[in-house]
């Protein structure tokens, strides 16, 4: 990549200090490492998919970028500003450029506000100079853009379906004209048929408005459909990152291979022939992640070195954090 990336994330760490029930005030706090040294570049207009199991730090990673959780490391915006070093006031300017779409469509809308007020909120925050009629015009334009009838502007969230609520959420994210939109499992709470509509809407908007998207999901097929590049996370660490087709066709990391083999194929004949690579054991506790490679406790290829050294991906377009990368062996 020659051009300056829109966002360059370097060695991002997020950890939480937790106290167990019944601990004494002087007991040392337990540290939970939610995100552990993630590094990636995000080019302008790119769609980065982030996949992983529940609790692997996908949402935390996204929230860290907009200072919703305290993080260390660097997140360089347009090659100039480190977002993580900004204070509350300085960050405000960038919040208009980075917007977020949430998982639960209804819960992310204030039930006491009309749709018009909800969509207008970022606009009123970042452009207080606009008068009421301009705001209303812009809100109606956005409603039309995301496939809602603009005459519904005075309705309340509970009068809409889940898919429509998610469209409201998308309109709210786009109203200030952001450059980067972080979609935190935007379709996980929706019906499959509605999922397709929302994904297509997002893709269309991404293309037309030249948006950069970070698309978080635990559904690999959804991510495949929308993303240019995909990152696989496990216990807060990047396992593999590659262009979508490369990752799905030529995965090198045993974890990615296990994940891909678990995706159901909508064809009974092929589904029956498919070989599932089972993952043994449970996700290790994030309080005490395994030494070396965090995946080694569940990996068929694990050997002595995996417990000693953290695998470092070789630079390139296809990053694999594994000591023994290679195609799936069954």
């Amino acid at each position: 990549m020659t051009a300056t990336p829109l966002l360059r994330v370097e060695d991002l760490h997020v950890s939480f200090s937790l106290r167990r029930e019944g601990d004494w005030p002087w007991t040392p706090l337990r540290r939970l490492h939610a995100v552990n040294g993630v590094t990636f570049d995000l080019a302008e207009g790119e769609v980065l998919g982030i996949v992983g199991e529940s609790g692997c730090g996908k949402s935390t990673l996204a929230r860290a970028l907009i200072q919703m959780v305290p993080a260390t490391g660097r997140a360089i915006w347009e090659g100039k500003t480190d977002l993580l070093s900004l204070n509350r006031h300085a960050m405000l300017k960038y919040r208009a450029d980075i917007q977020m779409v949430f998982q639960d469509p209804l819960a992310s809308l204030n039930p006491r506000m009309t749709v018009g007020e909800i969509i207008a909120e970022p606009l009123r925050t970042h452009h207080p100079e606009l008068d009421t009629s301009e705001v209303k015009l812009r809100v109606k334009e956005l409603m039309d853009r995301v496939g809602l009838l603009p005459n519904q502007i005075n309705r309340y969230p509970h009068e809409f379906s889940g898919g429509q609520c998610q469209r409201i959420g998308i309109a709210r994210a786009l109203v200030v004209g952001p450059k980067l939109v972080i979609c935190d499992e935007p379709v996980s709470a929706l019906d499959v048929s509605i999922q397709a509509q929302v994904i297509n809407l997002l893709m269309e908007l991404q293309r037309d408005l030249k948006l950069t998207l970070i698309f978080i999901a635990h559904d690999l097929s959804v991510v495949k459909h929308i993303s240019n590049r995909v990152m696989v996370l496990y216990l807060g660490q990047m396992m593999e990152m590659a262009a979508g087709r490369e990752l799905y066709g030529n995965s090198q990391h045993p974890y990615t291979q296990a994940l891909l083999s678990a995706v159901p194929i909508p064809d009974p004949v092929r589904e029956r022939e498919k070989v599932v690579i089972p993952l043994t054991g449970d996700l290790p506790s994030p309080f005490s992640p395994p030494s070396g490679c965090v995946f080694r406790t569940r990996c068929a290829r694990a050997q002595g070195i995996c417990a000693e050294k953290v695998p470092v991906p070789l630079p390139g377009d296809h990053l694999v954090a594994c000591h023994f990368p290679g195609p799936a062996v069954v």
């Binding site: 039309d144 005075n154 509970h158």
Partner: peptide, 26 residues
């Protein structure tokens, strides 16, 4: 600012429809 004038015409037709009044929780 960010108002796209080319879409305004198609929007204008749809705006001709009266705004529906919402039913608040109150």
């Amino acid at each position: 600012m960010v108002i796209d004038s080319t879409r305004m015409k198609s929007l204008a037709d749809r705006l001709a429809v009266d705004e529906v009044k919402g039913r608040s929780l109150w």
